[in-house]
């Protein structure tokens, strides 16, 4: 572990921390859609809320691939990404997405038309939900490959992905289902509101843990956290991720009246925080220098 703080450099022939620049806003948006959609489907699945499942399926199976295709250098070869199941979390995530697309659509159609029943219907539902769960968490595993980017190389990231996905799912079910599903079932509304508040608070705790862990993992992690809290990206991270995404969301969810306007405001605030976190996670990634003479 290097003990010296280096400057942040780009392509200069100077030793220093280097920005991760290969993955940017397109990947961030892709994973935002993927996690949000899978979270929405997952939560909707427990209440047979068809509208939520359809929107969730669309986000995972249409919006996310479109964003990913924009990112790929050769999108026409994208099918090849399934070849690395034995070692790559991108491949595993893709397999889960494909399974989700097929079984998720089958479950929605079955709910509507009642094509099959009994064990087969349960199997379709279970496979769709398990695939959904993998789609929710795999970004965290994808980002953990580079031990040099301390901000990413943490076991907390899959939990953050899962938490934000479930939170997004709950807030959107509350929003889309306010006049339909929840109008008839006030007990579901109360349950989802409690889960929402719990997830927001958990987001706050896990965000602190994430930043604390990164800051003490290495000098690059410390520099990344400084970028997020003090320097270049603080003007985005603090107001959007911490204030709007967590504090405002928590306050509205707890103290706000259960009106559609408040439910909508909570959903918007939460989504802003989620998207900002995804984008900034990629922006603030810093590599350690390969070696430094500071070891002398």
């Amino acid at each position: 572990m290097q003990s010296k703080t280096f400057p942040i450099v780009n392509d200069e022939f100077v030793l220093g921390f280097r920005h991760q620049g290969e993955w940017g806003w397109k990947i961030a948006i892709a994973f935002f859609f993927g996690e949000l959609g899978s979270g929405l489907f997952f939560v909707s699945g427990f209440y047979d809320f068809t509208m939520g499942m359809i929107i969730g399926w669309f986000l995972v199976s249409v919006a996310k691939p479109l964003a990913l295709f924009m990112h790929l250098g050769h999108p026409e070869r994208a099918w090849r990404a399934i070849m690395g199941l034995g070692h790559s979390w991108i491949s595993r995530g893709l397999l889960a997405s494909v399974l989700f697309t097929g079984f998720g659509a089958a479950h929605i159609l079955n709910l509507h038309y009642g094509i099959v029943s009994g064990g087969l219907a349960t199997l379709i539902f279970v496979v769709a939900m398990v695939a959904c769960l993998v789609v929710m968490v795999y970004l965290g595993f994808v980002l953990s490959y580079s031990p040099s980017i301390s901000l990413w190389g943490t076991g907390i990231l899959p939990i953050i992905s899962l938490t934000y996905a479930l939170l997004g799912g709950v807030t959107l079910v509350l929003m889309f289902g306010y006049h339909t599903l929840l109008a008839d079932q006030p007990q579901v509304l109360a349950t989802l509101k409690s889960i929402e508040l719990g997830l927001v608070l958990f987001c706050g705790v896990i965000m602190l843990s994430f930043l604390h862990g990164a800051a003490y993992a290495s000098e690059a992690g410390k520099a990344s956290v400084a970028l997020l809290l003090k320097h270049d990206f603080a003007k985005w991270f603090v107001p959007f991720v911490l204030v709007v995404g967590i504090a405002v969301t928590a306050l509205l969810a707890h103290f706000g009246p259960t009106t559609f306007a408040v439910v909508l405001a909570v959903a918007v605030a939460e989504l802003i925080g989620d998207l900002a976190l995804k984008v900034l996670l990629f922006k603030a990634g810093l590599y350690l220098p390969a070696i430094g003479h500071s070891r002398f």
Binding site: R18, Q20, E22, W23, H71, L72, G73, H74, P75, R77, A78, R80, A81, M83, S88, I90, V142, L143, Y145, S146, P147, S148, I149, G285, Y287, L288, A290
Partner: peptide, 15 residues
């Protein structure tokens, strides 16, 4: 075989 996903570029600890 490369699809240009850049996963390798982000994964390389040495950039």
């Amino acid at each position: 075989k490369c699809i240009g996903c850049k996963a390798c570029a982000t994964a390389c600890p040495y950039k």
